[in-house]
């Protein structure tokens, strides 16, 4: 069943001379993990806002085409309805803290209070979200007295507690340090195991290669490439359009130029693929086990 369907979407911000998204069509099936990559300004955030209903309901402007979020036509609906179907987490962890709550536990309750959920159910759901994001020990802390990685997990928990069908992540780790990034990706890994449908814009290609079922590369608001991580992430088109490539692809490409990587072997995007390609089948198994 399709959780997100976008048909021929073109969107232009009110103050912008050209469209941010041009003729985008995509479908996201239930349980699928779709990653969106692209250079800055390629339209990643705009696509995320559209998938969560903030375009056209928060950012006005001109939208053509059709967006179905969990079966609801986004232009026919409103934001209060759409946030029940799609949850949005974005870059800045600090600005996602509501600011009106004094503890993490209350912070996560904020969305449920707004929805008028009964207290008993609220507590059960919050405990589940705390466990899922691995922050059960932070419940009594102030949401402002946390590290970036912890804050971002609070933001994730605050969205997950509302139980959306689609989780939209707009570069959730771009402002975090390596440890914070790791913490957040652990949660995302747990979410994929639970069969959550996820749309994630991300710069960190190594992570995309590991998690995504499917990857879309955007360039100037248009879909440049679409396919499996192995196909898209190793494409020579990416560096030409200013998109970063995985360090494993980079190494293998150099090795290929020096004759150390056979022309027949597909270029790797993940560590395990690279190790296997360099001839270490056993080592590749170890890498996989470690992950």
């Amino acid at each position: 069943m399709a959780i997100l369907t976008i048909n021929n979407l073109t969107y232009q911000y009110p103050s912008s001379p050209q469209p941010a998204l041009k003729d985008i069509s995509l479908t996201l099936e239930s349980g699928e993990f779709l990653a969106v990559i692209g250079a800055n300004g390629a339209g990643k955030s705009s696509l995320c806002y559209t998938a969560a209903g903030f375009i056209p309901h928060f950012f006005r402007g001109e939208l053509n085409g059709q967006v179905l979020i969990d079966g609801v036509d986004s232009s026919q609906s409103n934001l209060n309805e759409l946030v029940l179907h799609a949850g949005l987490v974005f870059q800045n962890p600090f600005n996602q803290i509501s600011g009106s709550k004094f503890t993490v536990y209350e912070e996560i309750a904020f969305g449920l209070e707004n929805l008028g959920i009964a207290r008993e159910e609220m507590k059960a759901r919050i405990d589940e979200a705390l466990a899922l994001t691995n922050i059960a020990d932070l419940g009594k802390r102030s949401p402002y007295a946390l590290s970036g990685g912890q804050q971002q997990r609070v933001a994730l928990a605050s969205i997950l507690v509302m139980q959306p069908k689609l989780l939209v992540l707009d570069e959730p780790t771009s402002q975090l340090d390596p440890i914070g990034t790791q913490e957040v990706f652990q949660v995302i890994r747990a979410m994929t195991k639970r069969g959550m449908t996820i749309l994630m814009a991300e710069h960190k290609i190594e992570q995309v290669a590991e998690f995504a079922d499917r990857v879309i590369a955007l360039d100037a608001g248009e879909i440049l490439l679409e396919g499996t991580p192995g196909e898209v992430l190793t494409s020579p088109l990416l560096p030409e359009r200013g998109v970063g490539i995985s360090r494993y692809t980079q190494v293998a490409r150099r090795a290929q130029a020096m004759g150390l990587w056979s022309k027949q072997t597909h270029l790797p995007a993940t560590l395990a693929q690279a190790v296997r390609g360099f001839g270490g089948a056993d080592a590749a198994q170890e890498v996989n086990d470690a992950a």
């Binding site: 928060f58 934001l79 946030v83 949850g87 949005l88 904020f110 707004n114």
Partner: peptide, 9 residues
């Protein structure tokens, strides 16, 4: 922040 609290209904 407005986006964040709108996202939480």
């Amino acid at each position: 922040r407005a986006i964040a609290i709108e996202a939480r209904a």
